[in-house]
């Protein structure tokens, strides 16, 4: 005989279901502060930025809708194009170099057994230093007259460049500066390296005595998710490079606009020229460019990123 479940179930939900709802409510409440933060500090400003980008807004007073005029002004602004070119150059050069150096560093750290924690901490420390302080230290180190770097190079009989004043050298100096805090990328790579199964690694050692074979055919393919992660973060960071560029080149990108980055132009448009509408339009363009680049990388990632258990 079948028990009569219908009437019992209709009158009272099962205990587990009730507990589940309670947990869900508690979970929601715990997540609520974060969701509010996301809405207030990210989503609403983002929507406001899109709106202000289509307005004439000079700090005080209400924004006045002007359609796409701010975008037209950006298109006609030589400084925007100059800064976009510099930023692109910075990204194209600095991101691959940074990834390569971080990978080399991670490979070396992966081999170190004694003092490994110490070395990891040491390589991570530069990341903790405020960007402004780090930039000022570099300005002092690279001072052409009294900086220790040039004194050392001159002592070796070399003719060092004027790192910060020569337009041909200044962008490279900025790139050099961006390579300094490698800690995060290195740790991400190190995590990936330490997740490579030992049996796979040992089998590769048996198959080929050449270390670089293992690196190219086993290690790198297995850490491609980390490469993808570092690549995307690196591109986002490099398109938003600001503090170092501002410290070195000011709002005019000295020398001769060699260090004029897109974010610096955006900043000066907003807070030096008080043209919030155009600055918001610049921010919108940057958002779209970074978004498109990220999506493109994700799309290509299907063909070169290996995920364990992936059917492809």
């Amino acid at each position: 005989m079948q028990p009569e479940l219908t009437s019992v179930g209709a009158a009272k939900p099962p205990r587990r279901l009730r507990a589940g709802r309670g947990e869900a409510r508690a979970g929601f409440l715990f997540a609520l502060p974060w969701m509010l933060g996301l809405a207030v500090f990210t989503i609403i400003p983002l929507l406001l930025t899109f709106y202000i980008a289509q307005s004439k807004f000079m700090i005080t007073g209400a924004p006045k809708y002007i359609g796409l005029q701010n975008y037209a002004a950006i298109w006609a602004d030589a400084a925007v194009w100059k800064s976009a070119g510099n930023t692109m150059m910075f990204a194209v050069i600095s991101v691959p170099i940074k990834l390569a150096l971080a990978l080399v560093l991670a490979l070396m750290l992966n081999r170190v057994t004694a003092l490994s924690g110490f070395y990891r901490t040491v390589f991570y420390l530069p990341f903790l230093m405020p960007a402004v302080a780090g930039s000022i230290v570099f300005v002092l180190l690279l001072n052409p007259g009294a900086g220790p770097v040039n004194l050392m190079l001159e002592g070796m009989g070399l003719h060092p460049p004027d790192w910060l004043r020569d337009p041909a050298a200044a962008l490279w100096t900025l790139i050099l500066l961006s390579l300094w805090p490698l800690g995060v990328e290195t740790l991400v790579f190190l995590g990936g390296l330490q997740n490579i199964p030992k049996d796979v690694s040992e089998a590769a050692d048996l198959d080929s005595p050449r270390g670089w074979h293992k690196l190219v055919w086993i290690t790198i393919p297995l850490i491609t998710p980390m490469i993808l992660f570092n690549l995307i973060i690196g591109i986002i960071y490099s398109f938003q490079v600001f503090t170092q560029a501002l410290v070195i080149g000011g709002t005019t990108g000295k020398p001769a606009e060699a260090t004029l980055m897109y974010m610096v132009v955006l900043y000066r448009t907003a807070f030096r020229y008080f043209n919030m509408g155009q600055a918001a339009a610049m921010a919108t363009v940057l958002f779209v460019v970074v978004l498109v680049m990220t999506l493109l990388i994700f799309r290509t990632a299907r063909s070169w990123v290996y995920y364990e258990g992936d059917s492809r």
Binding site: T251, T252, A256, R268
Partner: peptide, 14 residues
């Protein structure tokens, strides 16, 4: 800023 930019280009013979 425009004057500063011009001066820099002039003084560096750019």
């Amino acid at each position: 800023d425009q004057m500063a930019r011009a001066m820099e280009k002039i003084f560096t013979h750019a």
